[in-house]
Structures are given as structure tokens and as C-alpha cells.
């Protein structure tokens, strides 16, 4: 009796948010899909059926090719960079050095800053001006006689987006460090001691014991970083504004929809973005749900 009533109550309690999510998330996903299959262009809604026309056009659109290339470069540099740097910082902090709390906070601080602020600061640091107007990092390198390091940063053709990824690494690697540090701390010391007694080198301990035990954390980090990088928008806008060499799907979607009134095309880009994020996230959610139930 009591149990039934609880069940009943929980359904009532949860229903408002379920309804809100159904309408405002799934309802609008459905609406966006419908728009992406329409000819809507201009201020007045037009739901005439266009089939997959918008999608097909996108895949032969040179601007969208740049977007895809940039997304791949950004994701690659950002994810690998953050994980390597984060892991390295975690391992260093795990050595029990003095003032660990201090360094931990310092490494974590960038995460507390918004992407816009990060972007504005790095826009200044990565100033690509030459000669007498040189400033920021280039000026620093040049005055240290490290002229080979002076470069065009985010205005470098093709690879400029990697400079933006670098600022994202600066921002997110502290977070990855925190994840790994928690993981490292949860590994019982006995395991390492046992391995040492068996004569394993420190490198071997990391390679065969610690890294395998940290796999779930690496997976989480991959998912979190991966979907952030697919959605990156504000950081690029803050560093460079709307400029094609650093274009990504989210910026194209925004510009074409709200500046150009190509609603059908914008919706198609957003659905492609949604699907690519879903490919990353859904297996992860299934995995966590499964392990959650097992526990």
C-alpha cells in the first residue's frame, strides 16, 4: 500500500520536468528536423517539403567542408592535448609534492573562466602583428631571441584553428587533471607496492596497472571533451569574430540562420551537429547506465 502510493507520488513529482523536457527539448528537436526538410528562407515560415535537399547541398558546400575540416583539427588537437596535459599534471601532483593544494587550484582556475574571457585574453596574447607593432606572445618570444617561435597564431592558413584549440586546452586541461587525480587517488597503494615488490619499474606500473585502471576516466574525459569541441562557438567568436578560415558548423548555422535567414539550411546544420554529438554521447550514456545498474 505504502509502496504503491510512493510510486504514484514519484510519477506526479517527476511529470512536470518530463513534460517540459518533452516539449522544449524533444519537441523542438522534432521541429528543427521538420524545418531542415523544408525550403524555409526569409522572415516568413515556409514548411514546403524539400526532402534532403538542404543536407545534400551542405555536403557539396565548400564552406561546410572548411567547417568539417576545422572541427576535425580542433577536436584532435583539443582532446589529445587536454588529456595528455591533464594526465601529466595529475601524475605530477600525485607524487605528494609540497603545496599540492596550491598548484591544484592554479591548474583548475582557468576552468572557472568563461570561454568569452579566455578568448579575449588569448586574442591579445596571440596577436599576429609584425615588426614594430608586434605584441603579446610574439613580442615575448622575439625579446627572448626565440624568433623561430614567432608565428601567425590563429591567422595561420588552414591550421589557425589549432591555435584556438590551444586556448581551449589551457582552459580545460585543469579539469581533466582533476578527473585523473581523483582516479589516481582511488587506486589502492597496495597494488603499486605489490608490483614494486615483484620488481616492476615505475613506467611499467603506469603502463600495466594504473592506465588500465583509469580507463573509465579516460572514457569520460574523451566524451566530455569531444562533445564540447563539436559545439565550440563562443571561444572562436571571442578570438576572431566571424571569419571563414576559423569557421565551424555552429558559427555557420548561426550566421546563415540569423544573418542570412536561411532557416532550412541552418536547421540542417544543427541536426547534423546533434547527430554527431549523439554518436558520441549515446553509447556513453548506455555504458554508464549499465555500470550504474550493476553496482
Amino acid at each position: 500500500m505504502f509502496k504503491n502510493k510512493d510510486k504514484y507520488l514519484s510519477v506526479i513529482l517527476i511529470s512536470p520536468s518530463v513534460i517540459a523536457i518533452l516539449i522544449f527539448v524533444y519537441g523542438f528537436i522534432g521541429w528543427s528536423m521538420r524545418v531542415s526538410l523544408s525550403n524555409w528562407k526569409g522572415i516568413n515560415p515556409d514548411y514546403s517539403w524539400a526532402g534532403l535537399k538542404n543536407y545534400i547541398a551542405l555536403f557539396s558546400d565548400p564552406r561546410f567542408h572548411i567547417d568539417i575540416r576545422n572541427t576535425f583539427i580542433f577536436t584532435g588537437v583539443f582532446v589529445i592535448g587536454s588529456i595528455l596535459l591533464g594526465f601529466f599534471m595529475a601524475v605530477m601532483l600525485d607524487q605528494g609534492l609540497r603545496g599540492e593544494g596550491f598548484f591544484r587550484s592554479i591548474f583548475l582556475f582557468p576552468m572557472a573562466i568563461s570561454y568569452i574571457v579566455t578568448g579575449v585574453v588569448w586574442r591579445w596574447l596571440m596577436n599576429p602583428a609584425e615588426g614594430v607593432r608586434m605584441s603579446g606572445l610574439n613580442l615575448l618570444f622575439s625579446s627572448l631571441h626565440l624568433d623561430f617561435l614567432v608565428n601567425k597564431w590563429y591567422t595561420t592558413p588552414t591550421w589557425g584553428i589549432a591555435a584556438i584549440a590551444m586556448t581551449a586546452i589551457w582552459q580545460m586541461s585543469g579539469y581533466i587533471m582533476a578527473l585523473y587525480l581523483a582516479g589516481l587517488r582511488s587506486i589502492p597503494n597496495e597494488l603499486r607496492e605489490a608490483a614494486r615488490i615483484d620488481g616492476a619499474s615505475e613506467l611499467k606500473i603506469y603502463r600495466h596497472i594504473i592506465l588500465p585502471l583509469l580507463t573509465p576516466i579516460t572514457l569520460s574525459a574523451l566524451i566530455i571533451l569531444g562533445h564540447t569541441s563539436l559545439k565550440v562557438f563562443d571561444l572562436i567568436i571571442a578570438v576572431s569574430g566571424k571569419q571563414l578560415p576559423l569557421d565551424v558548423p555552429a558559427i555557420y548555422m548561426w550566421q546563415t540562420t540569423f544573418d542570412g535567414l536561411f532557416y532550412g539550411r541552418g536547421a540542417a546544420i544543427s541536426i547534423i551537429l546533434l547527430l554527431s554529438v549523439a554518436v558520441l554521447i549515446i553509447p556513453y550514456i548506455r555504458y554508464t547506465l549499465k555500470t550504474g545498474v550493476e553496482q
Binding site: R63, I66, L244, P245, T256, D259, G260, L261
Partner: peptide
């Protein structure tokens, strides 16, 4: 109009690359 302008802007951006 806005649509035409944004298409020209994209064409220009590609040309600059």
C-alpha cells in the same frame, strides 16, 4: 537583402582563403 548579402559574404570569405 540579408540572404544575398550573407551569400556574398561567404563567397568573399572563401576567396580570401
Amino acid at each position: 537583402n540579408d540572404s544575398w548579402k550573407s551569400e556574398i559574404d561567404t563567397a568573399l570569405g572563401l576567396f580570401l582563403i
